[in-house]
Amino acid sequence: GTPGLGGGCYVPPKQVWLLAAKAKGLEIAGTFSRRQNQIFMDMTFTNRALTQLSGFAIQLNKNSFGIIPGAQLNVVALNPNQSFDTSLPLSPVGPIQRMDPLTNLQVAIKNNIDVFYFSCIMPIHTLFVEDGVMDKKIYLATWKDISPSNEIQYQISNVTYNTDTISQKLQANNIFTIARRNVEGQDMLYQSLKLTNGIWVLTELKIMPGNTSITLSLKSRAVDVATAIQQSFDLILHN
């Protein structure tokens, strides 16, 4: 399957995670995606060594969201200059250890030559689950219940989409608009999302017609996720 199709979740371009020069000829480029209710680590393995590379396996260190491989790594033996694309399903059911940044993943890759290590950052929107629509009553009660001192506000600039498109793009990434109001020409979107570990986040977007800067307000009982959530809005609304 093509990454990103199906759910319409935003998939960042692959980045080189492991340099061949640092891994005896093994290069790994990768990204993260979410499709069919599952997270994937989409990777391209390239053999830049002069001999065959084989016997690949992967291990993830403990991380903030308990992400572990949901299957064995499937990479064939690679001849020199050969590349292979693989998609590793991930499951959020492993042991938890807080990482900094929050969605940092430490990865170990073994092959017939050696073991190599790298880290990469999971875009947090791949952890937004499909059943993240909060009941309207609960939203209103929770919004009231969380103290204004726990509200975090961000400006997101250079957003060129209109309110409908903003709502659709966010929804494609499991950020759900549960109410929309217009007050004196200003659109207010009330939205919810839920992370794989059950943490709910309530957001409000203020959109002024003709103004490309929009205001994101965020309330959650777990404020630690705020920065990563803001970054996900930023990413989704600029792609």
Binding site: L140, A179, R181
Partner: peptide, 21 residues
């Protein structure tokens, strides 16, 4: 059942209070 008009009103009120900084 759930009184939706009441909920709608609550969101309108929330939006009203939040629209002015």
């Amino acid at each position: 059942g759930i009184d939706d008009s009441n909920l709608d009103d609550s969101f309108s009120k929330l939006a009203q209070t939040r629209s002015n900084p």
